[in-house]
Design a protein around this nucleic acid. Sequence first.
DNA 1: TGACATAGTGTAAATCATACACTTTAATCG
DNA 2: CGATTAAAGTGTATGATTTACACTATGTCA
Lengths: 222, 222
Amino acid sequence: MSYCYDYPRPAVTTDVVVFTIREETLQLLLIKRAAAPYQGCWALPGGFVEPDESLEQAAARELEEETGVAGVYLEQLYTYGAPDRDPRDRIISVAYYALVPSDRLQLRAASDAEDVRWFGFDALPALAFDHDHIARMAHERLAAKLDYSTIALQFMPERFTLGELQEVYETILRAPQDKRNFRKRILALEAIEATGERRRNGAHRPAMLYRVRDPQRVAIIK
Amino acid sequence: MSYCYDYPRPAVTTDVVVFTIREETLQLLLIKRAAAPYQGCWALPGGFVEPDESLEQAAARELEEETGVAGVYLEQLYTYGAPDRDPRDRIISVAYYALVPSDRLQLRAASDAEDVRWFGFDALPALAFDHDHIARMAHERLAAKLDYSTIALQFMPERFTLGELQEVYETILRAPQDKRNFRKRILALEAIEATGERRRNGAHRPAMLYRVRDPQRVAIIK
DNA sequence: TGACATAGTGTAAATCATACACTTTAATCG
DNA sequence: CGATTAAAGTGTATGATTTACACTATGTCA
């Protein structure tokens, strides 16, 4: 079966920059390419957009198929369409980025563990196509959004401490935050609330556990 | 001649939201569609991406072909790909927005004057496809960028007064600005400089004319 | 029961944003 | 040619926000 058109058409794919934070490092999910071009090279998860799905659905589907991750924050980043970005065919890629909470980063059993892996953002292997460029732009967008939205909460598990949240900010921004000012600022947003429970965690005072008030919502602030 | 592929492919277009400011109103450039679907309906200028051009090149080319406008600020806005956004074929549109300085808004003579026109943003006709949605998003982005970049300078002619610049801000933001605070803020950016010339313009004190220091550059501020 | 390690807290100073009204100046008109 | 007109141009005081900064609290473990 083949599909014919009067004019040449590019192929359209979605690629997803999947971020998580684990052990105080920003991590990025990559898959090893099984097919040419860039066979054996690490790349962003992604694939062709199907005729009956929206772009965001395509990105969510690819993410779930290749990694088992579903229901996470997903936002369109940018569309890349340089004529030579794929050496073989004209491919236009609508890039998204996704944020995975740290309690949901176990990868799909279906995927061969060798082929899907988290990498530290500062220790990425060479990436296929222009994927390093896409990943850099995603990081810039994410860091910018920390300053004017509650997007960082998308990384948090059900319950978390203010110290853990602060570590998330420090990891993405690559800069230490003043503890007292950070707490004042975050609590003033009224986006999280204390649960009353505490986390006992070693030979020191236990920390209050917080939860996100409206986990779906990313509020724009100020 | 026809082009055949193993899987169905969407068509990819660029659409451009072209803004200018004239007579203290934000104006938007529309073309009347000659062909179905939405024949006779007003729409954003745009068209198919050619095999050898980048997305931005495609947007710039469409803009120039249909309106004669070239060399203006052009930025990718968002990519729209709902499966049903075109009733006949799957079309993915990479939308851009462009800002045209007020001294360059004479439209291409080649275009039938009936078919290409500026409309006040507050008095738009019904638009084809999801173009009203695209136009609204472009306006939101533009208004947001006024607050953290020097993008408004892209609307200005070679020489302009601070009063004219203030009108541009007020028009886009739909809110009056305090004259003294506005001037303080703008001059502190060091993005424009006085020319020494003045504009004599009626029975009152003439205004200093300014020019943009680096007309290509849109600086991110604060 | 004392040492340890992280949690939790407030204030003062500096910076930035806002509100606000009169003087200047060239043109025009009588 | 002097008076009128209309927009240009200018500074300060107040409040709001942001920043810098260091000690006390508390549960665990040896």
